[in-house]
Simulated assay, not measured.
Amino acid sequence: MVNLTRIYTRTGDAGSTRLSDMSVARKTDLRVEAYGHVDEANAVLGMAITSGGLREDVVAVLRAVSNELFDVGADLSNPLVAEPKWEPLRIPPESIDRLEAWCDEFSESLPDLVSFILPGGTPGAAYLHLARTVVRRAERAGWAAAEAYGLEVSAGDEPGGVNPLALTYLNRLSDLLFILGRVANEGVGDVLWVPGKDREPVGERARRQREKIEKAQDDLGRSS
């Protein structure tokens, strides 16, 4: 259990911080950047949960994910080394399996897509799409850190690499959040993207394409 006795420490006023293994890193370090984005994604999940209107099973999944995102942040802030001073918190393969199972479970009741989706519909859906984009950013930042430090365990004085399972977790989580964003819009239907050439039809073909998308969106709303 973590015991926080004081929130401010003044130790970071010179632009440095400590990773979870107590090694010193600059606040601009790519690892710090990556787990900072994970922290931001978790904050957006909190907004989604408290926005109201989400199904209870969706909220339960989001609360579980919120806890695991702390694990992801801890993992990203712990370089891979052969002999750590203490056992680091790592994302296990089972966590990724669980995300994939949730993706399959929540996808079953969703209709096929005929276009890309725009954020919106319900507040919960909009927040979930925002969380998805922040998770994608965290994944990109994690890969930038991996390019700088590698994905391997360090046995010497070199900085340890980044755990690839943490990056895989973020990838699968962004997929799950996309799916849950659609689930959150079950009562109103997906907000579908209408390409520019179809928004203002200039010909019969473009007009038919727009009508097809609009009909599909209406059908989604009625079937939700």
Score class of each variant (00 low, 15 high):
3 N>Y: 09
4 L>S: 07
7 I>T: 01
10 R>V: 09
11 T>F: 13
11 T>K: 12
11 T>P: 12
13 D>Q: 12
13 D>M: 04
13 D>R: 13
15 G>K: 02
17 T>V: 12
25 A>L: 09
26 R>P: 10
27 K>Q: 15
27 K>G: 12
28 T>G: 00
29 D>E: 07
29 D>S: 04
30 L>H: 13
34 A>R: 06
34 A>W: 05
38 V>K: 06
38 V>D: 07
42 N>V: 03
43 A>Q: 13
45 L>I: 08
49 I>E: 09
52 G>D: 13
55 R>I: 06
56 E>M: 08
56 E>L: 11
56 E>K: 13
60 A>L: 08
62 L>D: 01
62 L>P: 01
63 R>V: 01
63 R>T: 05
65 V>P: 07
66 S>N: 05
68 E>R: 15
73 G>R: 02
73 G>E: 10
73 G>H: 09
74 A>F: 08
75 D>Y: 03
75 D>A: 14
83 E>A: 10
85 K>C: 15
86 W>I: 14
86 W>T: 15
88 P>I: 10
89 L>N: 12
91 I>E: 13
93 P>N: 05
93 P>T: 13
94 E>G: 09
95 S>Y: 00
97 D>N: 10
97 D>W: 09
102 W>M: 00
102 W>L: 00
103 C>G: 10
103 C>M: 14
105 E>C: 07
108 E>Q: 14
112 D>F: 07
115 S>A: 15
116 F>A: 08
117 I>G: 06
118 L>W: 14
120 G>H: 02
121 G>M: 10
125 A>M: 03
125 A>H: 05
136 R>T: 02
139 E>D: 04
149 Y>C: 01
149 Y>D: 01
151 L>N: 11
154 S>A: 14
157 D>M: 08
157 D>R: 06
158 E>I: 03
159 P>M: 00
164 P>D: 06
164 P>E: 10
166 A>E: 11
168 T>C: 15
169 Y>V: 08
170 L>S: 03
171 N>S: 09
171 N>C: 08
172 R>W: 10
176 L>S: 07
179 I>N: 06
182 R>S: 06
184 A>L: 01
190 D>N: 07
192 L>T: 09
192 L>D: 00
200 E>M: 12
201 P>T: 03
204 E>Q: 11
207 R>F: 15
209 Q>T: 15
210 R>G: 02
212 K>L: 11
216 A>F: 11
217 Q>T: 12
221 G>P: 02
222 R>S: 11
224 S>C: 00
